[in-house]
Computed example of a mutant assay.
Amino acid sequence: MDERMIQAAQTGDINLLYELILNDPYVLQRIDDVPFFHTPVHVAAFAGHIEFMMEMIKLKPTFARKLNQAGFSPMHLALQNDRTHAVLRLLRFDEGLVRVKGREDLTPLHHVVQTGNVDLLIKLLAVCPEAIEDVTVRDLAVKNDMFEAFQVLVGWLIRSRHGAAQRWEKELLSWADIDGNTVLHIAAIRHRPRVYANFPNQVNY
Rank of each mutant, 00 (worst) to 15 (best):
M1S: 05
E3R: 08
E3F: 02
E3V: 07
R4E: 12
M5A: 07
I14G: 01
L16K: 15
E19I: 07
E19W: 05
E19C: 12
E19L: 13
E19T: 13
L20S: 04
I21V: 14
L22Q: 15
D24I: 06
Y26E: 06
R30D: 09
R30M: 00
D32I: 01
F37T: 01
H38E: 09
P40T: 04
V43R: 00
A45I: 06
A47C: 07
G48A: 08
E51P: 02
M53H: 07
M54W: 01
M54V: 12
E55I: 08
M56L: 15
P61I: 03
T62V: 11
T62H: 06
F63D: 01
L67N: 01
L67W: 00
P74C: 06
M75S: 09
L77S: 08
L77V: 06
N81S: 10
D82G: 04
R83P: 02
V87H: 08
L90K: 10
L91W: 09
R92A: 09
D94E: 11
R99S: 13
R103H: 10
R103T: 09
V113S: 01
I122R: 14
I122S: 05
E130G: 05
D134P: 01
V137K: 04
N144C: 13
D145R: 12
D145Q: 11
E148V: 01
A149H: 05
F150V: 05
F150A: 13
Q151R: 13
Q151C: 10
Q151D: 08
V152K: 00
V154Y: 06
G155D: 05
L157G: 02
R159Y: 09
S160H: 06
S160P: 02
Q166I: 00
R167P: 03
W168T: 05
A176Q: 15
A176K: 15
N181L: 13
V183W: 06
L184Q: 11
H191W: 08
A197D: 13
N198Y: 06
N198H: 12
N201L: 10
V203T: 12
Y205I: 14
Y205E: 14
Y205D: 14
